[in-house]
Design a protein around this nucleic acid. Structure first.
Lengths: 192, 192
DNA sequence: CCCATTTGCCTAATCCATTTAGGCAATCCC
DNA sequence: GGGATTGCCTAAATGGATTAGGCAAATGGG
């Protein structure tokens, strides 16, 4: 019988697409196999386990997202860069909710260190270079930006902002403006 | 044979404790049943489904957390209240990771509206009353605080901050100080 | 162009979680 | 104490995860 021509890549991409359609948590080896019209067991020649499949989807999404963010950032600085950076994340989450969820999969230390997650951290730091922060503060700021963007996106995805009349886009813009203002003033600096 | 004396409450509490031990995503009707030494099917007299069990655990945790936050907030205002609020969330997540995860379960609109989630939103607004924000901004600020705290806690739980030397507690304090400064200045206000 | 090697996909089987149906016995309450 | 209730059980169907082992299709060297 004809072969489906599976490869690790095709399996992972199919998994990512499935995630966007049905949610990352519903991605299963069996479901991906159905998509290819092959037996579930057949996928085990390409991925080691269900966990392995999910990890590969996460790494794929992390890479893809890092590329998009890098593009968005090209040639920008300051508030402009901050906004482009934030929007790239939010757009990706809106366009590929399953993949975005995948990027939040908990990876073990060495997998994480070898992943595109490192590029994400570097890009965040690159943006902060446009502000005037000394070292311990820069790390704090990296964490704050990561927290705000990730938190906002996941609360928005969970429907947390749909019960109030205020537009989610307006809040997003306001938050980015606020962060910009904050960073230009050096962060926590106690008010005199 | 002796009965285990199950009730919905005992099942839910056992589920919450299990979540803290093995992670919310590994909470299963079968695992909870094992904990009681009864057959899996027996739990179905108390909860409708696996989903129902998880939802009940989420509502329970949301309630418990709201109580803790309310206590922490009592008699405080300003930066003091903001810090106590933030710490209450972070402490709960550290002490009860499984339950904290449960609070992030996606609830349908009516379940959410009847949940303690409403109290959480009210308490956030109560803190912001200590700052001087007009209405559209107050909603933006509610969203920002929710995003930062939730984002920070979940990134920290995912091990995202363990690769850098800078202490997570220091970043947390710096972030709270920064938010306080920002709010006292009215948020996004463009710098002159 | 054919045979050997590789390898892609299959069948079969096991294990475990979810869920429903139906039954017996412990408990409650009058 | 006896009837009604209900807690927990057995049985069984469904479906995902995973392993072992086999056949056939693709590939490439002679």
């Amino acid at each position: 019988m004809a072969r489906a021509g599976l490869t690790v890549e095709r399996v992972v991409v199919a998994g990512a697409e499935l995630a966007d359609r049905v949610g990352f948590e519903h991605v299963t080896v069996a479901a991906v196999a159905r998509g290819f019209g092959v037996q579930t067991a057949s996928l085990y020649s390409h991925v080691k386990s269900s966990q392995d499949l999910k990890t590969r989807i996460a790494l794929y999404a992390l890479e893809e997202l890092a590329d998009l963010v890098a593009d968005a950032l090209a040639g920008r600085a300051g508030r402009d860069a901050l906004g482009a950076f934030a929007d790239a994340y939010r757009d990706y989450a809106a366009r590929h909710p399953g993949r975005y969820d995948a990027t939040r999969l908990r990876l073990d230390a060495e997998t994480a260190a070898a992943s595109a997650g490192v590029r994400h951290a570097q890009m965040t730091r690159a943006i902060l270079r446009g502000y005037d922060l000394t070292e311990p503060e820069q790390t704090h700021a990296v964490r704050m930006l990561g927290s705000v963007f990730h938190g906002y996106i996941s609360l928005e995805a969970a429907g947390g902002f749909s019960h109030t009349a205020v537009d989610a886009q307006q809040s997003w813009d306001w938050i980015i403006d606020s962060l910009d203002t904050l960073l230009r003033h050096g962060g926590a600096r106690p008010t005199t």
